[in-house]
Each structure stands twice: as structure tokens, then as C-alpha cells.
């Protein structure tokens, strides 16, 4: 969950993004002044086959790999479809548009302002994760997940 006081932006590309494109755009976004938090959302790519007769077998997938963002390893777990950002104020938006224009050259994209991160836990969240779950993480990723958020160092 997040404090509802910061402006939020959602980048919606026309296509699902390859890891190389995600790497490019994230490196541009992460070095933009005024970005507090970046959330990658998309279709989950499980490490093993989840259903069917081949259940439990490894699931090698070209879209699931580790990328480098500001020199730090980021393991992609989804085929990225949305990039949601929390900003300190509205000032970085033109720079973000510029970054998107330079990276998304083959297809179009939309950049929306609004509220895209959860600000309150829902009844389902309580049912799923209980009352002890870490509140900062609910609505962003599974609070039961062992891998926490990645903190990008030295971008300011």
C-alpha cells in the first residue's frame, strides 16, 4: 500500500515488453529525478508448470530473466505489461514522456495519471494475508514472498 498523497503515473505500452526493452525504459525512469517507486505489473511467469500433466516440471521462459537497472540485478517475474510509478510531484512527467518516446519506437504507449497503487487493504487482502501482513507491500506484491522490494542505490 502507499500513501495517497503522492501523484502516480501508469505507462501502458501497446505490446507486452521484452526484458531488453524493460531494461532500457527502467534505466531511463530510474535516473529521472523525482521518481519514488517503480512497480512492474504483468502476467506472471511461474518457475514451474502450474497445471496439467506436466505440473511441477521446470518452465524455461525467454521473458523471465535478470536485467540490470542502475547496475543492480532485477529478476523479472512477469511479462511486463504496465509500469506504475509513484512520483514526488508532477514535475518529472515530461521527462518520463520523453523517455517513453525514445524507447517505445516500434509501438505506441499511453501515459496515464491517476491512482494505481492500493492505499487500503481490502477484505480479500485480510482473508488472504491476515492482519499481520506487511502493509507497505500489500497491493504491490505478495506479502508472503521472501524477495522484498529492490532498492536502487545512488540514482540521485
Amino acid at each position: 500500500m502507499t500513501d495517497a498523497i503522492y501523484p502516480q503515473v501508469r505507462i501502458v505500452p501497446e505490446r507486452f515488453l521484452n526484458p531488453e526493452t524493460v531494461e532500457k525504459i527502467l534505466n531511463r525512469i530510474a535516473t529521472t529525478e523525482g521518481v519514488r517507486r517503480i512497480l512492474l505489473r504483468g502476467q506472471n511467469i511461474p518457475p514451474t508448470v502450474p497445471h496439467g500433466p506436466a505440473r511441477g516440471k521446470p518452465n524455461p521462459h525467454p521473458m523471465k530473466r535478470t536485467i540490470q537497472v542502475c547496475g543492480q540485478d532485477v529478476e523479472l517475474q512477469v511479462h511486463v505489461g504496465f509500469i506504475i510509478l509513484e512520483l514526488e510531484n508532477r514535475d518529472p512527467i515530461p521527462a518520463l514522456r520523453e523517455a517513453c518516446d525514445s524507447v517505445f519506437t516500434e509501438f505506441s504507449y499511453g501515459l496515464q495519471e491517476g491512482r494505481f497503487m492500493k492505499s487500503e487493504a481490502t477484505l480479500s487482502d485480510y482473508a488472504k494475508y491476515g492482519t499481520e501482513a506487511e502493509k507497505d507491500i500489500i497491493g504491490m506484491t505478495d506479502p508472503r514472498s521472501k524477495s522484498g522490494p529492490i532498492i536502487l542505490q545512488g540514482v540521485k
Binding site: 505490446r15 521484452n18 502476467q43 511461474p46 518452465n59 521473458m63 511479462h79 505489461g81
Partner: peptide, 15 residues
């Protein structure tokens, strides 16, 4: 019902 991948392929969790 999902958007296509960059190369025009339909999303497949198992590729």
C-alpha cells in the same frame, strides 16, 4: 485476451 508480445506472438505462460 491479452496484448501481444513485441514480436507479435500471443502471451503464453509456458512459451
Amino acid at each position: 485476451s491479452l496484448r501481444l508480445a513485441e514480436d507479435g506472438m500471443m502471451f503464453d505462460m509456458l512459451q
